[in-house]
Design a protein around this nucleic acid. Structure first.
Lengths: 207, 207
DNA sequence: ACCTGAACACCGTTCAAGT
DNA sequence: ACCTGAACACCGTTCAAGT
């Protein structure tokens, strides 16, 4: 160790590794310096300060989320494939996408996906403002779902999901419903079901 | 000042006020003590430590989100009214709901709303597992939308929403679409449009 | 151009001591 | 039962000084 001179890329890599493992709160300038075997202050020369170090990590994440390749034989299927790809990629970088979210850059991160959606919605025959609405509705649906899903995973306990809730009124009339709601959510299934339902409603003529 | 003895409720109120104004990062035990006119350490006697102080604030927020009254003459309208109420209430407490989100309690906060949705979906004729799916899809849609919407508001700039994106391929064929996407999102409109589309698809028979 | 240690102003938290 | 000040271990950041 120690022979090569410290570089900005090295700093970013070490920082990214710390953040990926234990989240941004665990990223301390002093810890990072120890990791790199330098004085705390030399980090400042390369990245400015802690805030812009985190900004740089976020920037890198946004760039990594670039490529999207829709697959499927019709627009509906291809939209669903975009949705599933996005969901998977987001779930691989939980801490980093949380940081992107905090900085209000979620939207920019999804630009390539938005372009893909525009293409598919257009191919499905939607035009003008209606196409724009459809793209945005789908985009919000996908991203919103994943944000909420991430949240549920960190949740301390699904505590009241069960009996607490389903003895009142309605559940009495419909035990299968009560049982279904007592079971944990299957996110993959719910995700596909939701996207399919929304896409169907948006792509079929209003009449 | 100074005459009455310090109380847990006072500590929570002062803390909530600081958090509501400038977010949780601005809540410092020392600042809070100054605000209350006591020694830093007496706060610890009442609330334990900073973390459980924040937990208590979050708990209070979850309780405040209790009452939901659906209005409208059919299930579809009443579901939409639930959605709009939730959206409004969330938007009134941005920092606090972000904290609820971070702690993974978003779900628990929405229990009353979920109950209301169960009632309406049942009234619309859905039963059993299909009703459960519909409730959850709608719930995810609403909460996800608001999470993302909040994010966009904090966004530094909608920088590339415009020209950057829409000269390639598709936009050339459909100038009104390009124009529509260049305009900023109208969240209220998009929200209602999305919820309506999803609800419509979920409440109508699959055939 | 790059790195260093000392120093500053801020944290959250503990604890023995007061009343 | 409640409050206090002193002290500890940690922060991020600045800066003059080195090479």
């Amino acid at each position: 160790m120690t022979r090569t001179t410290l570089t900005r890329a090295e700093v970013l890599d070490a920082a990214a590794s710390l953040v990926k493992q234990h989240g941004p709160a665990s990223l301390t300038m002093r810890k990072l310096a120890a990791e790199l075997g330098t004085a705390v202050t030399s980090i400042y020369w390369h990245v400015g300060n802690r805030e812009s170090l985190l900004d740089a990590l976020v920037e890198r994440t946004v760039e990594e989320m670039g490529a999207i390749r829709p697959v499927g034989r019709n627009p509906g299927d291809r939209i669903l494939s975009v949705a599933r790809t996005l969901r998977r990629e987001l779930r691989e970088r939980p801490h980093l996408i949380a940081m992107v979210h905090e900085r209000g850059l979620t939207d920019r991160m999804f630009l390539p996906a938005q372009q893909a959606l525009v293409h598919e919605v257009h191919a499905a025959g939607l035009r003008g403002a209606r196409a724009a609405d459809a793209v945005r509705a789908i985009q919000f649906q996908i991203i919103g779902f994943v944000l909420l899903e991430r949240n549920r995973e960190r949740s301390p306990a699904q505590s009241p999901a069960e009996g607490d809730l389903w003895d009142p009124a309605d559940a009495l009339h419909d035990p299968p419903l009560a049982r279904a709601l007592a079971r944990p959510v299957d996110p993959e299934r719910l995700f596909q079901l939701s996207v399919r339902a929304l896409v169907k409603a948006l792509l079929t003529p209003t009449g």
